[in-house]
């Protein structure tokens, strides 16, 4: 077996999984972000926005996940695609950037992060399914760079990605203009993400926003919550005795002020 502490990817299950697949089993689904992620440059900096739905096929796997990943104080990255890939890729780059920051004693630059990301994704030839919008502010001012799974990058003043990108882009193409004011820009980002939330099935729930300026970063988690669940009209509590119990065991926790950890079996046919 591969030692547990070895870094990097392990491939020791691949042969077995190939065999299982050849016998007719389909490999299981990964959690996808579905996603509408957007980014734009405005007068004083850069803004990223994202919805908060994660999907597993047609199922909503997470109603309020986080798709805006912190890379450094001055850089965030919005992720779409395979959820685990966006999470792990951005975490790894965040870690490398922190080392870079400590070792050079300088604030990391956006282009550094972009090339780290694109080199990593290119190395894996598109098998790491991360579609990223990188936004940050460094000595070269506000920057917005997209990185695709195969490692290509793009530098634009506004961009959208994910399954809801068309809906969001429709909003940007209509309303984006250079040098917007902060409040207008936040509102536009929210509107673009909302377009994805309401018109794309892969996107849903709330809008997360991050505003990055020269010396300040504001992470506005759940900036807009257009899909709040209405409180239940009735409580669906079951009455005592409604569960048929065959056997009950009690284990007292060792740190509690109880007798030392012991399993005390109790036989009960019906819950009291």
């Amino acid at each position: 077996m591969v030692p547990a502490n070895r870094r990097g990817f392990h491939f020791d299950n691949c042969k077995r999984n190939e065999l299982l697949e050849s016998k007719g089993s389909i490999t299981a689904k990964f959690t996808k972000t579905g996603t509408t992620i957007v980014g734009l440059i405005y007068k004083d900096g850069v803004i990223l926005g994202a919805d908060t739905r994660a999907t597993e096929g047609p199922i909503v796997a997470d109603k309020n996940c986080e798709k805006l990943h912190r890379l450094t104080e001055n850089m965030y990255c919005a992720g779409a695609g395979t959820a685990a890939d966006t999470e792990y890729t951005t975490n790894m780059i965040a870690s490398k950037l922190e080392l870079h920051r400590l070792n050079t004693n300088r604030q990391p630059r956006v282009v550094t992060a972009a090339s780290m990301l694109s080199q990593h994704l290119f190395q894996y030839q598109g098998h790491i399914g991360a579609n990223l919008i990188l936004g940050g502010y460094d000595i070269n001012g506000p920057q917005l760079i997209s990185v695709m799974p195969h490692g290509s990058t793009d530098k634009l003043p506004y961009m959208t990605l994910g399954s809801g990108m068309l809906a969001a882009m429709a909003v940007f193409e209509t309303k984006w203009k250079p040098n917007m004011e902060r409040d207008d820009a936040i509102a536009l980002v929210t509107e673009a993400v909302s377009a994805g939330i309401f018109n794309d099935l892969g996107s849903g729930s709330n809008v997360d926003v991050v505003v990055i300026t020269k010396d300040r970063t504001d992470y506005l988690r759940n900036h807009s919550k257009p899909n709040q669940r209405v409180p239940k009209q009735t409580s669906y509590k079951y009455p005592p005795g409604s569960v048929s119990v065959i056997r009950k065991e009690v284990r007292y926790h060792s740190n509690a002020n109880q007798s030392p950890a012991a399993v005390v079996p109790e036989v009960v046919m019906s819950e009291s």
Partner: peptide, 19 residues
Amino acid sequence: WGAVVHVITPEKTETYHLQ
């Protein structure tokens, strides 16, 4: 085929085997 449910509280964990 039945179920097992663990109820974890600060003092103890109760394990129920259900019909």
